[in-house]
Design a binder for these strands. Sequence first.
DNA 1: TTGACAGGCAGGTAATTACCTGCATATTAT
DNA 2: ATAATATGCAGGTAATTACCTGCCTGTCAA
Lengths: 106, 106
Amino acid sequence: MDADKVFKALGDPTRRKLLDLLCERNGQTLGELCENLDMARQSATQHIEILVAANLVSTVRRGREKLHFINPVPLHEVYERWVRKFERQRLSLLHDLKRELEGEQE
Amino acid sequence: MDADKVFKALGDPTRRKLLDLLCERNGQTLGELCENLDMARQSATQHIEILVAANLVSTVRRGREKLHFINPVPLHEVYERWVRKFERQRLSLLHDLKRELEGEQE
DNA sequence: TTGACAGGCAGGTAATTACCTGCATATTAT
DNA sequence: ATAATATGCAGGTAATTACCTGCCTGTCAA
């Protein structure tokens, strides 16, 4: 998993909307996705390329159409690496802050 | 929660390293964090400002020092909104793909 | 086989980003 | 008080990003 590509892909509202659109109905064509995006087709293509590079979306050609499918695996890996780790210490944070303000070092 | 700020903040290796450093030892000063970063102090400050704007880090002044603390809440919210949603349909994806390739629409 | 449709390719621009250097301010220790 | 220390502020540059327009290719249906 390339965390950089995944987070950068997610760091744009257009690309998050694309994921939401595919979540509503998986396997949409480029044209269908564009109808919901309010930008030129080529701009949407570039956003999709970034999602594909991050392995968040896979595409399949069918005739002259291109179908798009979500791949949730990188999201799960991001969770395992970046969310769980920090959640574990969630409860200890207020304590850390209080201790530091009181000037006590570890 | 501002998903845009959170994902953009996470979309840079320096900022993710800052979070890892604070995870190892919460409450570090700017100077301590800089020692591990291999860039000018002011560059690090700018990265930290982005983490603060995303509410991933909080700061407290103590004398002439500035202490930095992780806030894991936005990460959890990102998980709730962006990871769980897509995980739910994880198992159905191969089926969607197969069906599309066979040319059957819903 | 020809027209309509779906998508790809190749630039080009304005805004944003990630760095930097130089100087200023505030706090602490001598 | 003064020097050292920790951080803040201002501006400047090169790379990246998010758009666009214009034209080309491949596929399907009449």
